[in-house]
């Protein structure tokens, strides 16, 4: 085997423990080999730095912002939600004559997790305020009453309402080394999606399966609380989004930078149709930039 290949295998940790020990003994007794290995180690490190910069530059181009949901838009949605909730409440009150409340979207959303935080000064040796990963501000909770975003996998998703506080006493070095082993980190029901919230039983009870036996055309079909997506969806992530608008809940699929409208309960296998309505697209981009 060529020496360069052997050095590569050593640096890429591809040698067996026995071969590794043997090679290290060789390095120890050969100054030329030692310098060559040191040089090649620098090459690997420098390539890693280049890759890190590439990845960061790539992420930098992704349009995300804490303000991306826009206060004005958020207030508009809250306004719509509030008006809708009040109107619905009045109708129910007058129709039933009992004033007995039924579960509304906004009432359901009130079950969103509590924020657990430990405010500690970030000075010198900082202990950091750790917020439950899913915790959102009150404003965001209000927003989530009208905008529900949910990532779906290929199986049934049964997310928990209970989000435990993350324990910031975790062994940070272990964590950075890829071993998240603290009990709280292990057991924490940290959310898969920050914008996801259990506000909609219909959506949360929905199970999604992908049938990629025919990967040419993409279509969908509802069977009870099951949504089947037909086509090749496994290569890229997809998300289910729901917009509550004027009392109506519209379901959308986001896949490969495109949005498709899904009609709840569509029992017939229906081809996916791209959303073309400009306003709807804008709203979808707000919740799923």
């Amino acid at each position: 085997m060529e020496l360069q290949e052997k050095i590569d295998q050593y640096l890429l940790d591809q040698l067996s423990p026995a071969d590794k020990t043997k090679f290290e003994q060789l390095i120890a007794g050969d100054s030329h080999l030692k310098s060559e290995v040191a040089l090649q180690q620098s090459v690997v490190t420098a390539l890693g730095n280049t890759r890190s910069m590439q990845l960061k530059a790539r992420m930098q181009k992704i349009p995300v912002s804490m303000a991306s949901t826009g206060n004005a838009l958020r207030l508009k949605w809250i306004g719509i939600a509030t008006t809708g909730a009040v109107a619905a409440g009045l109708i129910i009150f007058f129709l039933t004559g009992t004033g007995q409340e039924k579960n509304t979207e906004s009432a359901e959303s009130s079950s969103i997790q509590q924020t657990t935080s430990t405010e500690i000064s970030p000075a010198v040796v900082p202990t950091i305020e750790s917020t439950t990963p899913s915790a959102e501000s009150q404003t965001e909770k209000a927003e989530q009453a009208v905008v529900v975003k949910k990532q779906k996998n290929t199986g049934t998703v049964a997310p928990s309402n209970e989000i435990k506080a993350f324990d910031n006493s975790a062994n940070f070095d272990d964590i950075e080394n890829g071993n998240v082993t603290t009990p709280n980190a292990e057991n924490s029901s940290a959310p898969a999606n920050t914008l996801y919230t259990e506000t909609n039983n219909k959506l949360s009870n929905l199970s999604v399966t992908v049938d990629n036996s025919n990967s040419k055309d993409k279509s969908y079909q509802f069977t009870g609380s099951k949504l089947t997506l037909f086509g090749d969806f496994n290569n890229k992530p997809y998300e289910l989004l729901e917009l509550n608008n004027k009392g109506q809940k519209n379901l959308f699929l986001s896949y490969n930078n495109e949005y498709y409208e899904l009609v709840w309960g569509q029992m017939k296998k229906t081809p996916l149709k791209k959303v073309s309505h400009k306003e709807t697209l804008e709203k979808l981009k707000v919740i799923n930039p």
């Binding site: 950091i128 993350f166 070095d173 964590i175 998240v180 980190a185 292990e186 940290a190 898969a192």
Partner: peptide
Amino acid sequence: VLSSKISTYLYSVCLN
């Protein structure tokens, strides 16, 4: 081996 959710892992690394 990821022994927690990715979000938990990222959260921990960010904290660190």
